[in-house]
Amino acid sequence: MTNVIYAILVLGIMGGFFGLVLAIASKIFYVPQDERLEPLCNCLPGANCGGCGFTGCTAYAQAIIDGKADLTKCAAGGPAAAAAMASIMGVEAGEMVREVAFIRCSGTSAKMKANYDGIHDCLAATKAAGNGPLACSFGCLGFGNCVSACQFGALTIVDGIAKVDRELCTGCMACASACPRSIIDKIPYASTVMVECASKDKGPVTMKACQSGCIGCMLCVKACQHEAISVTNFLATVDYAKCTGCGDCVAKCPKHVILDIAPKKVEA
């Protein structure tokens, strides 16, 4: 019987002693934490995608409290998260334009200059001799580095080219940093016209490598009534601040590399 009492006493005293030490330690080593941190974190998606430029959602929330970041940095949470955080911080959220990733390549028929049988990885393929197996040195390799970088399942490989699902894309641009060819751009969600090519090669070179490559012929520039499209380095680029989505350039493009996703107007 005394054994049992000893056991209870000893463990009880030990437990109590350690508890006391920990309680004192928690007072000594107390790290003051802003009480707004936790509710702010709850507003954020918690995917820690890093699209805001901070190491994770908690780091971003801390930066907001420290006044180092504004509320519109979180692309994944979108305007809803910004509004929720604004109510916690007691300020107005800035206006937020939803942006999505866009892959500047449509070369499903791009020519191959070599057979690549190595590691199934875009970076490894570009490191292979001759800058990868594709004849075009700007084209999507289709090994899906961007697909595995995407935390939201917005990317898929269709016919050897990565495609973005605009509804699922949050615009965190994790894919863009995973792409060794740097052909993923951020464009406004509302945009309907886009150039599906990233080739900065001269016209004849591009034409030889791919049937659907921008050759820099300037026809789209002449067609545009809003000065919204320009050609630099033999590559057309749309300025979304000016583009009205009229689709004039789309009709003029001889290589059909300008994509128009606007719903077709039905003639009355």
Partner: peptide, 23 residues
């Protein structure tokens, strides 16, 4: 009772180190 006592010690130690590191 050694296993129970040791686990008590280890758990408290880790807790203590966690607080110490955080600070």
């Amino acid at each position: 009772m050694q296993i129970i006592a040791f686990i008590l010690v280890i758990a408290s130690l880790v807790q203590f180190i966690e607080m110490f590191l955080q600070k």
